[in-house]
Computed example of a mutant assay.
Amino acid sequence: MEVISVPVLNELHGKHNCSITYTSHRPIEVSISSPHFGTLTETGDSLFDALAKLRLQLEKSGWLLLCNVARRDAYPSQMMIQMALCRKIYLLKCGMPARRDDIVDIFGEAHPEQVGTVQEQSEYHSKWIKSLGSVE
């Protein structure tokens, strides 16, 4: 089990660090702990999937993870998802295919203006896919 420290943000409570732990086997179990919201746990077929479920729980209380997995413009490839424990994610740019140089660690810190909700991230991913139709 690995333990990571990641910042979280809430308009009312400000920015604080929380602890994220996850298992190394399927189903992936991820827990996030903070004195401000307690401990939340979710499982998923991949680290990305389990973290998305946790983010949905956090969003209900106004919390956002301040790391790359929560960036609006970040999304893993299908291969990354299939690798379950892959800690990498692409930073996507509309109109441009994802490149190796666009890969970052999912737990790398992100600025508040870069992160969004799970829905915003999904919408950006759909927009990015559509934008590739115009790439020659």
Rank of each mutant, 00 (worst) to 15 (best):
M1Y: 08
E2L: 11
V3A: 15
S5L: 13
S5I: 11
V8D: 00
L9G: 00
N10M: 04
N10F: 04
N10Y: 07
E11N: 13
H13D: 13
G14Q: 07
G14A: 06
K15C: 11
K15S: 14
K15R: 15
H16N: 09
H16G: 05
C18F: 00
C18E: 00
C18M: 13
C18L: 11
S19H: 10
T21E: 15
T23W: 03
T23V: 05
S24F: 01
R26H: 11
R26G: 01
R26C: 07
P27Q: 05
F37A: 05
F37K: 06
F37Q: 03
G38L: 02
G38P: 01
T39C: 07
L40E: 08
E42P: 00
D45L: 10
D45Y: 06
F48W: 14
D49H: 06
D49E: 13
D49N: 10
L51F: 09
K53E: 10
L54S: 07
L54T: 07
Q57M: 10
L58Q: 03
K60R: 14
K60N: 08
K60W: 01
K60H: 09
G62D: 08
W63E: 04
L65V: 01
L66C: 11
L66P: 06
L66M: 12
C67G: 02
C67E: 07
N68T: 15
R71Y: 03
R71Q: 09
R71E: 06
R72C: 08
D73K: 12
D73R: 13
P76S: 08
Q78T: 12
M80E: 12
Q82S: 14
Q82V: 02
M83Q: 14
A84T: 07
C86E: 11
K88L: 10
K88T: 10
I89E: 04
Y90T: 02
K93C: 05
C94V: 12
G95F: 08
G95C: 07
G95Q: 08
M96F: 08
M96C: 10
P97S: 09
D105R: 01
F107T: 02
G108T: 15
G108F: 06
E109H: 09
A110T: 00
G116F: 02
G116M: 04
Q119M: 10
Q119E: 13
E120D: 11
E120I: 02
Q121R: 15
S122P: 00
E123T: 10
E123D: 15
E123M: 10
Y124W: 06
W128P: 05
W128E: 06
W128F: 08
I129G: 03
S131I: 06
S131Y: 04
S131F: 04
L132D: 05
L132I: 04
S134G: 07
S134C: 05
V135Q: 10
V135T: 12
